[in-house]
Design a protein around this nucleic acid. Sequence first.
DNA 1: GGTAAATTGAACATGCGTGTACGACTTACC
DNA 2: GGTAAGTCGTACACGCATGTTCAATTTACC
Lengths: 198, 198
Amino acid sequence: MDRTTDAVGPRGKRADAQRNIAAILDAALECLVRNPDANIAEIARRAGVGRVTLYGHFSSREDLIDQLFARTLDRADRALEAVDLTGDPRAALSRLVASSWQIVDQFRHLLDAAQRSLPPARIRAAHEGPMRRIAGLIERGRAEGVFRTDLPATWMVALVHTVVHAAADEIAEGRLAEPDAARVIDATLQAAYAPPAG
Amino acid sequence: MDRTTDAVGPRGKRADAQRNIAAILDAALECLVRNPDANIAEIARRAGVGRVTLYGHFSSREDLIDQLFARTLDRADRALEAVDLTGDPRAALSRLVASSWQIVDQFRHLLDAAQRSLPPARIRAAHEGPMRRIAGLIERGRAEGVFRTDLPATWMVALVHTVVHAAADEIAEGRLAEPDAARVIDATLQAAYAPPAG
DNA sequence: GGTAAATTGAACATGCGTGTACGACTTACC
DNA sequence: GGTAAGTCGTACACGCATGTTCAATTTACC
């Protein structure tokens, strides 16, 4: 309502403070994706600020993770929102995978950290949004007869997360080239989703 | 060579000591599967022994996890070994899934804990055995033309772990009934492995 | 039944991560 | 250019898990 209600810009914080807050969140994301147990000192160091400064902006480790979680979720949601899910569900699935598998994976790593310090209810609520979008696509594909109906829809939703995660792991292990990831993920999901022959 | 070289029975340990060692390993497995960060006190309590006793048999947390890891791996390997992998690779895959998905999942949970305290080389070496068996089946299926060859074989191997893990998670979340698991896993893998239509 | 092995709990040392208090310093902003 | 807001490092308190020591007690085994 005032002037700059960015949903990010805290009331009347000074410019350097806002910059530091962003740097801390960025650093936290990098650190926690690499190691879910990364400590506050490490995050502060990577953000280029003192540990005390970090605590000046985030009351506790839990608070930091919670806010980072919210920010990342928001971004992921926005990225998924940008994907056109109309038309042939199979093509829509391909588009969804191509444009968001990295985000989904990044989110999943952060989830690891979140599960260690956030209440389960918070986690569950966070899934809600993105899940619904994928679930909708799958339901439509089933209704139109291009996706199989002999497996639970919830299972097919879970499969997306899983396959993306596996691909990311394979890349990390050096067994899969990053440019191939989207193709492999898509081919696997399309095959798994197709109605059984006969 | 002596008399009872069970590969389990340490030299001349007293009967109660051997019993306790087994109880500790069992307790560790249960605790670590539920929570990869379970502490020694908790494991000792569940095993029904004092913490000091535990340290009497295992020099450190790392040592305990390492030995548990070895034992579990050995069991998993033995269970997989019992499966008949000859004949139609598709049927062999079904048998493999049906008779060992629980074990694979249990192993995977333990892996979580192991990754926190064991050197990566140890983990890698552990995978070797079971992996080879699955990889062999997949290679044969590809050679016989019943499995697809347009995706990396390593990816198809990874998919087994992944899909089993996902199913276990779905069960834990209450979205999948345990008796349905084998069917769902099998249907998913068969679809993902089948050569693309054309 | 005697002996050595094994178990026990309590107490202690240590290391690590979190979160706080303080005083001095620097920076943004009017 | 003044002032409040922000930052910094050090130091400290606290909780928690690991691993060790010790003396007393129980247990297996010949």
